[in-house]
Amino acid sequence: MLLLPALFGLAFLLVPLIGLLVRAPWSTLPSRLFSAEVWTALRLSLVCATAATVLCLLLGIPLAWLLARGALPGRGLIRALVTVPLVLPPVVGGVALLLVLGRRGLIGERLDLWFGFSLPFTIAGVIVAEAFVAMPFLVIAVEGALRAADPRYEEAAATLGAGRWLTFRRVTLPSIAPGVMAGAVLCWARALGEFGATITFAGNLPGRTTTMPLAVYLALETDPEVAVVLSLVLLLVSVVVLASLRERWIGGLR
């Protein structure tokens, strides 16, 4: 009874990817693949997605800890707010970022005034946009891991005289490592594929803010075959990363 819709579901997810492979210009693939624009966009994408993930880890793990362990009022509401970027259309996120961190934004205006620094149209802007969209994935995964972890180990550490920070570093963090890793991978994958917030907040300039998804979108209008090649590269990178990490670290996803 469930098998048929399940198979349809599987086909629904896989057929578009197969279509990509079928329509790929295999004969001209190598020459297109090794063009400078592909590598520029790919390198930028990898650097930005990784930087965004690091940023998410630095801010997201403490936030997840606060949500899971902290005794603060209105925790349910805060959790709901944290997940807003998850459901928000990324373009809306980009507009929101512009209004706050843009050159005339609430905070961005100060940055520009005091430091002569503005985020839009810079690599930093890409990283911020990606982190904004991707962080909820990390927070949710880490919070889940924290809730599943046995708090008695932490209590035991505390009775042995460990401070909060030491306990967190030596007991909590190792115990939730698989969850953190899973969250980081999801976060990285989301950042890598980010389009809407990036193009809205960081604009589009090859070599500076044109990440792979933007390049795919642009190429579709000029040379669809290049778009297919770029898509294949992105697909390959995602598959390789997910597959290699899954075996080693992501017990939590199974």
Partner: peptide, 16 residues
């Protein structure tokens, strides 16, 4: 600093 997807996107960046 940016190559926009259509003229209105470029205009918006000026307006903001």
């Amino acid at each position: 600093d940016s190559l926009e997807q259509d003229v209105k996107a470029a205009l918006t960046k000026v307006g903001l």
